[in-house]
Amino acid sequence: MNALPPTAATVAHDTPAYNFAYLDEQTKRMIRRAILKGIAIPGYQVPFASREMPMPYGWGTGGVQVTAAVLGPDDVLKVIDQGADDTTNAVAIRGFFRKTAGVRTTTHTAEATVIQTRHRIPEAPLAEHQILVYQVPIPEPLRFLEPRETETRTMHALEEYGLMHVKLYEDIARHGHIATTYAYPVKVDGRYIMDPSPTPKFDNPKMHRSKALQLFGAGREKRIYAIPPHTDVVSLDFEDHPFKVQTFAQPCALCAAEGVYLDEVLLDDKGGRMFVCSDTDNCEERRAAGHRGALAGDDISRKDRS
């Protein structure tokens, strides 16, 4: 029993040759079956035996498993976080798939066949051949009203969504607004209330009757759900308080885009700030097409600041 372990060198020899896209085939089959159920029951959270991934739970393990299960050698993958291709976690996930699947990657939305995202939907409308994969931290829209899975599952089964409406209405009574700005609940095809993941509610209308297939993966919570193309996705609201998205007072400071989601960037500690596109690809393409915002200057070459 006290036989000592082999040396580090022999341990290294045991390093497995990982499968295409990391997951073994049986795991992919299990995930693929869950995806099909999700598509057949739009907005319903399908339990799946989420695996332990070589990245932390809460950092995109659900999205990564869904992407790994659908991805093939002909796909072109785009990964964004907060709308940007070069946020650190997006870089790490893109690198993971380049390493384990050898797929082509891109930052151009139009070029991608599979787009994995955290917290945003690209500004440009998606096309029929595209798949949008969302990373989801808490898939249950009722979770903040009722922490117990046993309860929320029954509420979905009975289509008993009164609690959600009460919560939204209490917001209105107290603040004059619905005080939910992201992860804003939607109803899918008139049946299931669904959490769109923590995208700003600005993006909710993009889900409605999108041409692309939308897949949602929650790794830690072990749930997969889906919205097929051309499916009604309606943000919850009230007749006297219709759903409204956030508007920005000014256009993007770099590309002058209006009607897009902007990040606020602090420029100094005296209240100096600017607003720039959250969707970096959209912003770059607009600038390449000659659009100039107030602070763009002439030189728009990318500079590293690492």
């Binding site: 295409f20 992919k28 693929r32 598509i39 297939l213 889906a226 097929p228 193309p229």
Partner: peptide, 19 residues
Amino acid sequence: QPVFDAQTTFRAIMDALAR
């Protein structure tokens, strides 16, 4: 080619169910 053939067939199945 089990890995790639399954992926190709799955995408067709998924497409069919999504459309």
